[in-house]
Design a protein around this nucleic acid. Structure first.
Lengths: 139, 139
DNA sequence: AAAATACCCTAGTCTTTTACTCGGGATTAT
DNA sequence: ATAATCCCGAGTAAAAGACTAGGGTATTTT
């Protein structure tokens, strides 16, 4: 499976923040309850989301998290990349890796992985949280 | 990573058979040497490829494997599906699973996973071994 | 000032998956 | 007969995944 619980829970949590974007910060406990997730596990995910500057945190009573940018400015790819690392189908086409094919010269299969990655990135980079929101409210 | 060594090695091995499609059967040892893979590990992969009827086996001396169909009739998706099982980005959009979302009603993120799957399937189902072969010989 | 709320951080642990290896058996060409 | 080859069921070591434990620190409300 391409997406682990990190990406799954993380995106779900980000959608809660997207819904509440115009309200105050949302505490993790509230997100955890709404989505039936572990609050402790969410903390780990939100650390990564914060360092990648996708969310802003507010400490203390009445604290919580807010999206750093409007939902229309955050793509699914932004979120998943922050939580899962590279989403390439194979190491040899991952951005953060040296594009080294350790097998025979001119590895013919590599171009398939590259095509796959392009197709995946297209969806990930063009779908924003606002798009999901719009889609959800229609149903 | 979406693709494990099963899919990676398996597709590579299938390409060797594709190149040799008009010759006699190719023994695993030869594939293993050419691609620097473990022969024993390949045996496991070929068991699956055989039961999915992508390759035909010939026992005994001078035996080996052949593609069951011409390279233009075998897609990358056929091979990967045989070796990796479902290639969906998430369980909830995998074909062999009940499409059950165990979280809150109308899970809004599901449509993203579905879009992703469609984009991936498009590549996997339209790229054949012959396409890879053609691409490789051009370089 | 104190209590409550909430984020922040480092470990550790249990389970599952991955990536194989081992050792044998069956079949066929020579 | 013998060598080459496919066939098969176990087992295993390492890595990844999915968390939990438990402390700390900052902020706000009262």
């Amino acid at each position: 499976m391409l997406i682990s619980t990190r990406g799954e829970y993380g995106l779900r949590a980000m959608m809660v923040l997207a819904e509440e974007f115009n309200a105050g910060p949302v505490p993790l406990r509230q997100i955890a309850q709404k989505e039936h997730l572990s609050e402790q596990y969410l903390e780990h995910l939100f650390r990564d989301l914060r360092t990648k500057e996708l969310v802003t945190s507010f400490r203390g009573a009445k604290g919580g998290y807010k999206l750093s940018r409007p939902p229309s400015d955050i793509t699914v790819g932004d979120v998943l990349w922050a939580l899962e690392g590279s989403l390439a189908p194979m190491q040899c086409v991952a951005v953060d890796e040296e594009a080294v094919c350790r097998h025979r010269d001119g590895c013919s299969t590599r171009f398939v992985w590259q095509k796959l990655k392009v197709a995946m990135d297209e969806v990930l980079d063009t779908t924003t949280l606002a798009d999901i929101l719009a889609r959800a409210s229609k149903e």
